[in-house]
Structure formats: structure tokens, C-alpha cells
Write a protein that binds this DNA or RNA. Sequence first.
DNA 1: AAATAAATTTAGATATATCTAAAAATAAAT
DNA 2: ATTTATTTTTAGATATATCTAAATTTATTT
Lengths: 218, 218
Amino acid sequence: MNTFAEENYLKAILSLSIQGEELVSTNSIATELNTSAASVSDMLKKLQEKKLIIYKKYKGVALNKQGKSIAVNILRKHRLWETFLVKKLDFNWDEVHDVAEQLEHIKSEELIDKLDSFLYYPKFDPHGEVIPTKEGTIPQTDRVLLSEIEENTNGIVLGVSLDETSFLQYLNKLKIEIGTEIQIFDRIDFDKSVNISINNKKQNISNEVAKHLLIKNK
Amino acid sequence: MNTFAEENYLKAILSLSIQGEELVSTNSIATELNTSAASVSDMLKKLQEKKLIIYKKYKGVALNKQGKSIAVNILRKHRLWETFLVKKLDFNWDEVHDVAEQLEHIKSEELIDKLDSFLYYPKFDPHGEVIPTKEGTIPQTDRVLLSEIEENTNGIVLGVSLDETSFLQYLNKLKIEIGTEIQIFDRIDFDKSVNISINNKKQNISNEVAKHLLIKNK
DNA sequence: AAATAAATTTAGATATATCTAAAAATAAAT
DNA sequence: ATTTATTTTTAGATATATCTAAATTTATTT
């Protein structure tokens, strides 16, 4: 059985891997978890002893099979709990992250099975993110980040890849939610911001925001 | 904010107080929490520094106002979660304790408010135990323990005061559940066991079991 | 290629929560 | 009222998870 701290490290490594780092650096984990690089080094040593990661000093870290399985399972629990909080308890999608961060560490496979069933086996969480299966796979979807989308196309917002209150509240302000149709015009070279329109209203979206918007090309 | 361990100590002290110890002893806490008396002494010192208990060395401990408020709130959360697990997720009443022990430590007042509403503000948990109010009071009910009930009377099982799998499974075997009507005949002096009948079937109930059965006198 | 900068690890501390063994205080028995 | 037994506390260790500061390794510049 793993501690909360260990689980959070595994989850952070998974998250950074998905975001593109094949070899995850100590510093990026420290940033992700709001802790010091020294603490990360300490923990990586421990996770290696527990045979959950592949870690080469000064080089970086990756999850091994068992570590990935644990991390994906926590992600599954996190997203199922978020779904529960929004669908059943009437939380807003921008309020659920912190509570789900706690709930994801509850240990009971039966609990998650029953929760999954209670929610009618949802495939996506309230942010549009795919929910990993019980078997530990993350179903792939054909989404593109707004920051990387082709210019002069249309699309639908399928989800967000960041679960931070300030970000989600900003989206509310922009009137961007899951299912919103958008037209993409062009990308500015200088700051990589994107010009789009929502309901015929033109807007400029910063790269920082565009990086976390998942779009389905129409 | 308190740690899980601190919360568990406060809960244990509350539980033992309710069971009748006005001054709770170090040893009884150790037994309740399956730990050593030394650990309990250590923790009591800490809880006193945090001003959550009234502790006199070698004499015993009691909750002060703030400590009681925290402990009652954990009890409320525990019982609400158990209700959720049984009513919504189809757990059996003898399966929910361990998961609720984890869930009770989740920190979010809003979560509990919404859970309470989602469950239609239940007054009793699946074991028949009263759920403390949001304001921190434990509503009193006119129940008597089977171990202390008057002889030659009738009663209804209102609940149990112990949430242990082996105990609840034994009750299932005895066909005792909440709402079961029983006739009480007499109590044996020697072992304090009680002779009762359920559906006209005579049975002898040990004091150990009778101590945890809450009965409403008819 | 040497010097500088950045990233990472180690060393040494601190805080929490636990333990065993020994000491001290209280309760029970003779 | 002593002695004995029980309960409780303290002392000293261990394990987890964190930190700051110093040392080391790797990357980047000049």
C-alpha cells in the first residue's frame, strides 16, 4: 500500500509524461507539486526502491509498468469522484478539484466499482477528460489542443487539460464550456495566441489558455 | 487543521465518553485505537498543547468544547458517509465501516452539506445510530441497551452501537436487524446474558452482544 | 577547453507519529 | 502501612516527508 505522498508523486510523473516529457525532470515534478527539488530527489529514491519508477540520477524519471498502473488508477479515481461531485452533488466544475484530490486517495476497489456503476460508467469527467478504464488503459480520443490546431478551421470544445479554479473561472468568463462551437482564424507568431470567434464574437486566446483547451476538428 | 491521527484520537475519546467514561483513561484509548499506551501519552500531550482536550497526567482525559466539536463533526461525517454507501452505492451495512473511516477525514464543509442534502437530511445511519447535526449536537433518543433493559418487556431493535464486521455479521445470523421486534424474558445473573425471543423463537444473547443493541421499549 | 550557469543530489535538520524498554505514579493486596 | 501489581509517562529509536544549504553533476557560454 502506498502513502498519499507517494501516490501524488506517481500522479505528477504520469501527468508530466502525458504532457510530453518522456524523461520527467526533478524540477518539473517539484513545480507540479509545489515542493523543492531536494524533496523530489528524496522521494524518487524511495519510489525506485519500491520498484515503481525507472530513475537515473541527474537524467530523469519514468514510470514503470507497476507505477503507471497505480498512477492511472488514481487518475481514474480522481475523475470519477469529480464526476460524482458535479453530477450528483451539484458542484460546479471549477469547484471540485481540491476535494477530488483528497477523495482520490481513498483505498477501496469496491467503492470505485460501485461509484462507477452509480454514475452509469461515465467515459468523460466534467472537464471533458477521458476516464481511464478499470483495466488501467486511458482511451485515446482524436482531440487537438487549441494551441496546435490548424488555422482557418471550425471546432468544438471537448474538454480542458487543466483543473485549476482560476483557469476554469476564466473560461466561464470567456463563455467557453464543453460543447461550445468555435471558429479558429489564425495564430499570432509573436506570442502564439490564437484568434477565434465564439457566437460570431471575435476573441484572442493566449497560448497559455490555448494549451489547455481540447478541440475536436469539424 | 488537524491530522488524521489527531482526529482519530478525538473520535476515540468521544466514543469512550459516550460509553460512560467521564475521565477517559490512556489504556482504554490505546485499546480502542489498537496502539500502545506510550503512543497515547505522546498524543495527549500534543492535543493538550493544541487546546483540544483537558488532560491531567495519570488521571485521564476529557474533550473540551473545541475538541468535542471536532470529534462530533467527524462522527457526523462518518455516519453520513455510511448512509451514502448503503443507500446510494448498495453496500451492506456490515461492509461500510472501513471505507467510512477513511472518508470521514475528507476536509470540505461544502461537501458534507451537499452530501447531507443529497441523502435528504437523514437522522439515522444504516446502523440506527443518530447522525449529529451540522451545529454539533447529538440528538438524544430514548433507547436502552439490551444489556440494561427491564425484564419481561417487549421492544424493537432501533440500532447498534458497534460498527464491527464480525458483530454485524453475527446479528445477520441471529436474524436481528433494525426494526426487529423482540420479547425480553430474563437476565441470567451469572453471565449477564439475556433470554429473548424473535418471532417466537427463544434465544440467549450474551452480555457482549446485548451491550451493543439499542432497544426501544414498547 | 575552461569558465559559468543551471539542475540535481546529498548532508544535516525539523516535525509527525509511532515503537520498546525503563522509570514513575497510582491502585490493589496483603 | 508496606509490598505488589497495574497503569501511565518518559527516554531513546525508527520511519516518513519535508526543508535549507552545500556539494556535485550536467549543460551552456565564452
